Amino acid sequence: MKNTKKLAALALGGLLLSTSAAGIATASSQLNGSIKITQDNEANYANLASVNIDQAVASALKAQPGQVIKAGLENEDGYLVWGVEIASNNQIHEVKVDAKNAKILKIEKDQPDSQKEGIEEND
């Protein structure tokens, strides 16, 4: 009986630990920029940004060399960022650049738009 209680306590502890680790992983994947967007008005993004497109692209290329496909201001998790897509080694990388100080906030692999459309059509 004592062993059963110990096993149950260990199982519960393991479940709590894995649940909190998953919560931490989810929370840490959220991006934190310098310019908080209070009103989501894309026409006003350029007025809010301190970093221009050339500075954002230069910063992105330092972090992820390659060929720039496109760049634009975006609302990412409630913060204003430059999203710079870079093609490198047959992959597309989405580089998120802080619109205030040109710091790299996140780099992630992205699928080409042609592949995204195929996935959306199949859903």
Rank of each mutant, 00 (worst) to 15 (best):
D54S: 14
A58Y: 05
D40R: 10
S59L: 06
D40F: 08
L48K: 14
A46K: 15
V68T: 12
P65Q: 13
I37C: 05
Q55A: 14
S59Y: 07
L31D: 04
I35F: 00
E42C: 03
E42H: 03
N32Q: 13
A27S: 06
A63T: 10
A49C: 04
D54R: 12
A58M: 04
T38I: 03
S28H: 11
A27F: 02
V68S: 02
V68L: 03
S34V: 07
Q30H: 05
L31R: 10
L48M: 08
N32R: 11
A27W: 03
V57T: 14
A43M: 11
A27Q: 05
S59P: 13
Q39Y: 00
K62I: 11
Q64M: 14
V51I: 14
A63V: 04
I35H: 05
D40T: 09
Y45L: 01
T38A: 02
K62T: 14
S28M: 12
D54K: 13
K62V: 11
I37F: 00
S34K: 08
P65V: 12
A46I: 12
I53S: 15
N41W: 00
V68I: 06
A27I: 10
A60V: 07
V68C: 02
S50E: 08
G33A: 04
N44G: 00
D40M: 09
A49N: 01
S28N: 13
D40C: 04
Q30G: 04
Q55H: 11
A27Y: 05
L31Q: 07
T38C: 00
Q39R: 11
K62C: 06
N47T: 03
Q30S: 06
P65T: 11
Q30A: 04
V51S: 00
Q64D: 13
Y45I: 02
A56Q: 11
Q30Y: 04
A63Q: 14
I53G: 14
Q39D: 01
K62F: 05
Q55K: 15
Q67C: 05
A56E: 10
N47G: 00
P65Y: 09
N32L: 08
L31V: 14
Q55M: 12
A56C: 08
Q55T: 12
G66V: 07
Q30P: 07
D54T: 12
P65A: 14
P65G: 13
A63K: 14
L61Y: 04
T38F: 01
A60P: 12
V57I: 15
N32P: 09
I53M: 15
K62S: 11
N47Q: 06
V51R: 04
E42D: 03
K36Y: 00
G66R: 10
Q67R: 11
Q55E: 14
L48P: 01
N44Y: 00
D54H: 10
A49V: 06
A46D: 14
Y45A: 04
A46L: 13
T38E: 03
